[in-house]
C-alpha cells in the first residue's frame, strides 16, 4: 500500500523550477532515500509533502490525504525533522518533549510514559533537565528524531538528519531509523552520505529538479554498472547544470 503518492509535482519560484514534474510512490514501512546534490530540489519537494510549501502544479497524497485539501490532516500523521535544528535551545529535554507531545494532543499520562521510555532509550536520563543547547550535536539529532516520532506518525520526513554528525552516532542514528521502520513507520530521508543510501529500501536521485533514477540500491548499481551507490550518484549528479544553490 502506498503512503505517499506523487504525480507530476512541481514548484516554481518565478522562472526557476525548483522541483520540476516529479512522480513517485512510497509504500508503507519503506525507508525511502531521497538523494541529490545541493540545490537539486530535495528540501523543496519534502517541504511540499509536509504541507509547508504549496505546490505550483501536480497532485500528491500523503498518508491517504490530499495535499491541497487536507494539509492539516496530513500534519497529524507525519513527523518532520528539518535541516535546521528544530528543538528549543532554551528548554530542557523534558520540556521539549512535553511541548511537542502536548501540541500533538498527547495526554499528560502519555507524555510521561513516552518521556521516560525515550530518555531511557537514548540514555539521556541524567541530562533530562539540562537545556538542549548544552547537548552535543549527535545527541541533539537523535533527540530531535525521537521527538518527531512522539505522536506515532505513519511517515517521518528526515532532512539530512546526519549532517555533521560523527560516524559512530551516524550508525546509531540508522539503528534508530531501522527500529522505526520495523514498527511500520515509513521513513523518507535525504542524505549526502552514500553509505547511508545503501541502507535504504529504495532510493531516488534528483538532478536539477527532476528524478533521474529510482529503484533499490541493487537495481541502480546494476543499471549504472557501478560498484557502489557513490559511483551511481557521481555518474548522475555530474551532468547537473545547477550549481551549489
Amino acid at each position: 500500500m502506498n503512503v505517499i503518492e506523487v504525480e507530476n509535482l512541481s514548484k516554481h519560484f518565478g522562472k526557476f523550477k525548483a522541483v520540476d514534474d516529479i512522480s513517485f510512490n512510497v509504500s508503507r514501512g519503506e525507508i525511502f532515500g531521497f538523494l541529490g546534490a545541493n540545490g537539486a530540489g530535495k528540501t523543496t519537494a519534502m517541504r511540499m509533502l509536509c504541507g509547508l510549501s504549496l505546490p505550483t502544479l501536480g497532485e500528491a497524497r500523503v498518508a491517504g490525504f490530499d495535499l491541497y485539501k487536507d494539509a492539516e490532516q496530513i500534519k497529524r500523521n507525519i513527523g518532520y525533522m528539518s535541516q535546521r535544528f528544530s528543538l528549543y535551545d532554551d528548554l530542557s529535554i523534558r520540556e521539549n518533549i512535553r511541548f511537542y507531545g502536548g501540541i500533538y494532543g498527547l495526554t499528560n499520562k502519555q507524555i510521561k510514559a513516552k518521556t521516560e521510555s525515550m530518555l531511557h532509550h537514548l540514555n539521556l536520563e541524567e541530562e533530562a533537565n539540562k537545556m538542549v543547547k548544552s547537548l552535543p550535536l549527535g545527541w541533539k539529532q537523535k533527540l530531535a528524531f525521537s521527538v518527531s516520532l512522539l505522536h506515532d506518525p505513519q511517515i517521518v520526513f528526515l532532512d539530512e538528519p546526519t549532517g555533521g554528525v560523527d560516524p559512530i552516532t551516524r550508525r546509531e542514528f540508522w539503528t534508530m531509523i531501522y527500529e522505526a521502520s520495523d514498527k511500520g513507520t515509513t521513513v523518507f530521508v535525504t542524505t549526502h552520505y552514500m553509505d547511508e543510501a545503501e541502507y535504504c529500501s529504495r532510493v531516488s536521485i534528483m538532478v536539477d529538479g527532476k528524478i533521474d533514477a529510482l529503484g533499490t540500491p541493487l537495481e541502480l548499481k546494476e543499471k549504472f554498472d557501478s560498484p557502489n551507490m557513490g559511483d551511481v550518484f557521481l555518474k548522475l549528479a555530474r551532468k547537473a547544470k545547477r550549481g551549489d544553490n
Partner: peptide, 12 residues
C-alpha cells in the same frame, strides 16, 4: 532560529 517550521508542520 527555524523552530517556526517545526510548529508549522504540527496540526496546531
Amino acid at each position: 532560529i527555524g523552530t517556526i517550521e517545526q510548529i508549522n508542520v504540527t496540526p496546531i
